[in-house]
Design a protein around this nucleic acid. Sequence first.
DNA 1: AAGGTGAGTTCCCTGAAGAAACTCGTCAGT
DNA 2: ACTGACGAGTTTCTTCAGGGAACTCACCTT
Lengths: 185, 185
Amino acid sequence: MTRKPLADVACSIARATDLFGDAWTALIMRDVLVGVTRFDDLAHDLGISRKVLAARLARLVDEGVLTRERYQDHPPREHYQATAKGEDLYPVLLGLMAWGDRWYGEPAGPPTRIWHTTCGRDTNAVAVCTHCGEPLTVHNSDQLPGPGGRVGPGTRVLGPLIASRAERRQSPGTAVADPDGQTAP
Amino acid sequence: MTRKPLADVACSIARATDLFGDAWTALIMRDVLVGVTRFDDLAHDLGISRKVLAARLARLVDEGVLTRERYQDHPPREHYQATAKGEDLYPVLLGLMAWGDRWYGEPAGPPTRIWHTTCGRDTNAVAVCTHCGEPLTVHNSDQLPGPGGRVGPGTRVLGPLIASRAERRQSPGTAVADPDGQTAP
DNA sequence: AAGGTGAGTTCCCTGAAGAAACTCGTCAGT
DNA sequence: ACTGACGAGTTTCTTCAGGGAACTCACCTT
């Protein structure tokens, strides 16, 4: 794929996508988080090429999303565990799952249910506003340039666009710093 | 990549990933949802190969996530718009963005802020339980086999695993503490 | 007529994904 | 001691998708 260096794009989605935007990574994380943690189990479960699995796991360990641990010495056996950073991907997976269920749901129902132990019911994930708890949609929210924004690959067109929107909207909370709308480095 | 047919895997994450688990698709959807909707703008903004962009857009239109519309006739010009199915991916993008901000955040701050128009504040997305509104984590939720579940590629190991958990848990009304201590505080 | 813009196509080249076989260390059974 | 199996990768070989850049085509502007 000649991995494009998305990591340096000034967009958190791009950085997350650089890691996560690979068909296998999401599925590997699903499996690890749910409890399939050994190499062979992952290979069999996913039907992934062992070579690619080894590469993905190495990358995920490298990124601090998984750790590789020896869980028994006698026949030396390793397994992969999610770090805090890895566990934090769980909500993203729930979002993907919810979307898949909604738009590709089979008549029989979803293949997997999520059981919320705290409230004791089957549940689904909704992405809501941290402040008021209202579900966030394209229609009730706006992207505005943040303090760490800069123009570069990945935001050449988008950057100026949201900057001009911010201007039109005038001071939303704290006004935008840069007058030229291109938050400089 | 020799696109593996993930679509028939009995897992909604796999189905969503089949579409979304491509480095470019997430970024294209971000751009389209935020307002970059024309071919050339997308190509310039993302720095994506035009060939690949054409292929991705065709696929997204095919999947019913985007529509291609002529917005002016004189010089014939088209643009891409998100359908309801496409807009529904927005929460997933917010999840990715939140994760990227949390774990790859620059000292300067996030490159983009999300302005919630309803409550009038900068916000972040949290994935919460539809019933009680508590944030969902690996520790307070469990995957259980759903009505549409079946064993196949992508669930050869995982399927039996969650099935056995469901058995151990017995009637899911009684909160059972996992013997292996997986369920954390 | 010359140049520009939007929206793609076509071309070639490299390198990542897939498949399957191979390695290496350690048990378990006979 | 010999054979087989398992876990965890590594190696080899082939093929096909991605990157890059040039090319097309229709229309507009000067």
